[in-house]
Design a protein around this nucleic acid. Structure first.
Lengths: 264, 264
DNA sequence: TGACACCGATGTGTGCTGACATCAAAACTC
DNA sequence: GAGTTTTGATGTCAGCACACATCGGTGTCA
């Protein structure tokens, strides 16, 4: 495809030479974002085949950028490249559901409900165990901080200060996960924060959290401070049960899939 | 920076305990593998800076290959690229601990013990919840299959048939996770299989699994078949407790880290 | 004389392009 | 229908232009 001489880096748009750059992210990231969101949203359905050249044209970027973006999407399980065929969109069962990018894209689109359910269920599984581990292993400083935050949460909750409560809630659960000393648990902090903010933003959160729920957070912190693993687990379980039942309405209509994760 | 010297492309020639591989022999994959293993193993320490040109030379590949590989490693949180500086190795707290590649590399090297502990703890958190969900939601076919497999496990266990037991064990837990209808749980199948084989290969598995443990698997399957979520959870919890206590010795000396997840 | 600010040189990632290699699907020949 | 050739896509390579962070030199001011 000879492209005639003109400026190769034609930054379309009328305005002249400047204005590019600092457009937030690199071309590479923008390409990943563009393709990722369209695949996860379903705009590019499973089995859809694209050509690298077509993507260059569509995204107005060069081969390098397209190729590097496709490589990353490939490592996320979103696409595969086949010689003589092109770049094929893979079924959702091949996506890596733990990748932050994939989670973000799903939360931004159709799959939001199902994604929130998955995260909430994962949280409900992990947090009680994290509380147990924290009670056994967490350093003194984290135990103390957990106590402080839980008490502050109670105050903010009783005062109906939603914004501060959310911030403390996130901090509490982050400390809990970090304090477990399990790096996989600790890495869920971001996703947990996402579900908590999601709950608040979507009005699933009562203005005044139930008094008992507030006390449970204090119970968790006190049990961890005291090194009582069983109590920490039990109190955390109660929080999780409450949380799930609060949010359940948001995804009741979402279908579940029972397809084994394919390949590796 | 003396590096290499020896075999640059040293593909573990020894008996690879893990079966995947298939060695796609793509230059791109080899570059990822080469750098990934060396970073995760600690051969390239945190903060170490490499130059793209140096990597081309070291791996004997062109710019494109190096750049695409670095992009992928960047998306895994293993490295960052800085203009005018080079490609810098990031601390382990930035790695994505859920990525299959990272997990595989850690299992293959120093971090094996810590990785197995993380996976086992994650499993112990997830499986009881998965059992609960399966009891509520799994399709009839999976419930039936779970029952069949659990009975076959009991037979193989009593007969001391280790190889067959392992295979059935993996199948059982895969069915359980898949049957939960939670895509994140289902995606842990591969990692669970890894821990199970690891346990067997490293002799942490008794030749004749305890009779009670075998029965617990049947209990889980029967509870799921009957739709009894609480019983399924309880029986699964028992299995997890037993499993953890069996394997615990393998990682008792591994240090825990309490660093909050970084980046975003 | 010394400390600080400015500014250009330098080096390295980022992005673009043309060319060739490779390989598998599709078309073709026998 | 089986084997062979053609075709068309990704895979790989090499060179260039550009953006920009860092470094070091130079000038100014105290």
């Amino acid at each position: 495809m000879l492209i005639t001489g003109g400026t190769a880096h034609a930054q379309d748009g009328s305005a002249g030479p400047i204005m590019l750059t600092t457009m937030s992210t690199s071309l590479h990231h923008r390409a990943i974002e563009h393709l990722g969101t369209r695949i996860v949203s379903g705009a590019l359905p499973t089995g859809h085949v694209m050509l690298a050249e077509q993507l260059e044209d569509e995204l107005k970027v060069s081969r390098s950028v397209v190729r590097e973006a496709v490589r990353v999407l490939q490592s996320l399980g979103l696409v595969e490249t086949i010689k003589r065929v092109g770049i094929r969109v893979l079924p959702a069962s091949r996506w890596n559901p733990f990748d932050p990018l994939v989670i973000r894209w799903r939360l931004a689109g159709e799959g939001r409900g199902a994604q929130l359910r998955s995260l909430a269920e994962l949280r409900s599984a992990v947090e009680p165990v994290a509380a147990e581990l924290a009670a056994r292993n967490a350093p003194e400083e984290i135990r103390r901080e957990l106590l402080d935050v839980s008490l502050a949460m109670r105050d903010a909750g009783q005062a109906g200060n939603v914004a501060e409560f959310l911030q403390l809630d996130i901090q509490f659960h982050s400390l809990l996960l970090t304090g477990s000393g399990n790096e996989m648990f600790a890495n869920l902090v971001g996703q947990v924060a996402e579900t908590l903010t999601g709950r608040t933003v979507h009005g699933l959160m009562p203005d005044h959290p139930r008094e008992t729920a507030l006390q449970w957070h204090v119970d968790v912190a006190e049990a961890i401070a005291a090194g009582d693993a069983a109590a920490a687990r039990e109190a955390s379980s109660r929080i999780m049960r409450e949380t799930i039942s609060e949010m359940e309405a948001g995804w009741r209509d979402q279908p579940r899939v029972f397809i084994p994760r394919q390949q590796g």
